[in-house]
């Protein structure tokens, strides 16, 4: 038979062990696991994500992957993306965004833009200190702020970046192979045509 009230003493012992243990456990491995945020920073897991950014290769002007196809703008559920196609000197549209804005105060981080992008150009960032005093000036990110290099992307999401790079490389190889095959085919066709022409056309007699 348990002595009445012994359960309370057991509970008190648990809290006492916690209390004393929190002072003895210097490494804070088991107790006091709270992160002291501004001094201690969290090591984010690789899959953590916050807001989208635009990937470029090499040069931010020329290496921009985005072609202003506007698929992400259409798919975005809260409609926080705004894109305007660039034009060349003659007023002819070119495959590059002139304006690319993302309102991160509206963005909900759903990653749908990333899923739908056919050019692997929009990816999720993992920044989290974005608080600001002005909602409209500082929280609407423009193209200049959104553009981040592929090197950065490799740093924050190594696995994903490697997959993307592999895909791009595969596509490039395939494209090159296709181009080569096409060129060969064209050459072959040309040769064949030439041969046929040579065959069908009688030798011009003088």
């Amino acid at each position: 038979m348990n002595l009445p009230g012994s359960g309370i003493l057991k509970g008190m012992a648990v809290t006492a062990v916690n209390f004393i243990g929190s002072f003895l456990d210097r490494a804070h491995a088991k107790r006091l696991i709270t992160e002291q945020y501004p001094e201690e920073r969290p090591t984010l897991v690789e899959t953590s994500r916050s807001f989208p950014f635009l990937v470029f290769d090499g040069d931010p002007e020329k290496g921009i992957r985005c072609t202003a196809c506007k698929i992400c703008e259409k798919e975005c559920p809260p409609q926080c993306i705004f894109i305007v196609k660039d034009k060349d000197a003659n007023g002819k549209p070119i495959l590059r965004p002139q304006i690319f804005d993302i309102d991160i105060s509206v963005c909900m981080g759903c990653q749908i833009c990333v899923e739908v992008c056919p050019f692997e150009s929009i990816r999720m960032d993992n920044i989290y200190e974005v608080s600001a005093y002005d909602r409209f000036e500082t929280l609407v990110l423009h193209k200049e702020q959104l553009l981040k290099s592929n090197v950065y992307y490799r740093q924050i999401h190594p696995t994903e970046a490697a997959q993307t790079d592999a895909r791009i490389e595969a596509a490039r190889v395939k494209k090159a192979a296709a181009a080569k095959a096409a060129a060969e085919k064209a050459a072959a066709a040309k040769a064949a045509a030439a041969a046929k022409a040579a065959e069908t056309q009688p030798e011009p007699t003088a």
């Binding site: 809290t15 209390f19 929190s22 006091l32 709270t34």
Partner: peptide, 13 residues
């Protein structure tokens, strides 16, 4: 502070 220590937290610091 004490309550926090008993619940494995730091408390106000």
């Amino acid at each position: 502070k004490i309550l926090a220590r008993m619940q494995n937290r730091y408390g106000p610091n």
